[in-house]
């Protein structure tokens, strides 16, 4: 095993263990952990089977095979960011609905209080 393989194996193991630990403590929800776990597993696979990178490079026509690795990393990070945007959008939507409901309820309450006084 080469040095670079050991380093990437260690790094990806730390990421994987970290993600699992966060889920265990309830600080990261399972559905958002999937992409992270996939990412670290893919890094692990590529660290153990080094020739996979060369194969990927040939397959995609990338001249310098190690940059295929960066492409892969970039792909996963983009995927994770996109997932964040989707989650933020849905949070914004529920936030809007909740604010509206609260405002409507507050108004209704004030109205009923006023009615009760007179």
């Amino acid at each position: 095993m080469e040095k670079v393989q050991i380093v990437s194996l260690i790094v990806s193991s730390i990421v994987l263990l970290g993600v699992v630990e966060l889920v265990r403590r309830g600080r990261l929800r399972e559905n958002y952990s999937i992409l992270w776990i996939c990412t670290s597993l893919v890094i692990m696979v590529f660290a153990v089977f080094r020739h996979l990178i060369d194969w990927l490079g040939r397959l995609t026509g990338i001249y310098y095979p190690p940059s295929a690795f960066f492409l892969l990393a970039f792909f996963f990070l983009t995927l994770i960011s996109l997932q964040f945007s989707v989650v933020i959008s849905s949070l914004t939507k529920s936030n809007k609905t909740l604010s509206q409901e609260i405002a409507l309820l507050k108004q209704r309450m004030e109205e009923l209080e006023k009615k009760g006084k007179t």
């Binding site: 936030n95 809007k96 604010s99 509206q100 609260i102 405002a103 409507l104 507050k106 108004q107 109205e111």
Partner: peptide
């Protein structure tokens, strides 16, 4: 009557309320 939104939702969000 006035409906007070707890946060600023923007023109469309307010109208929708």
């Amino acid at each position: 009557p006035v409906i007070r939104l707890p946060v600023n939702l923007g023109y469309g969000g307010a109208l929708q309320t």
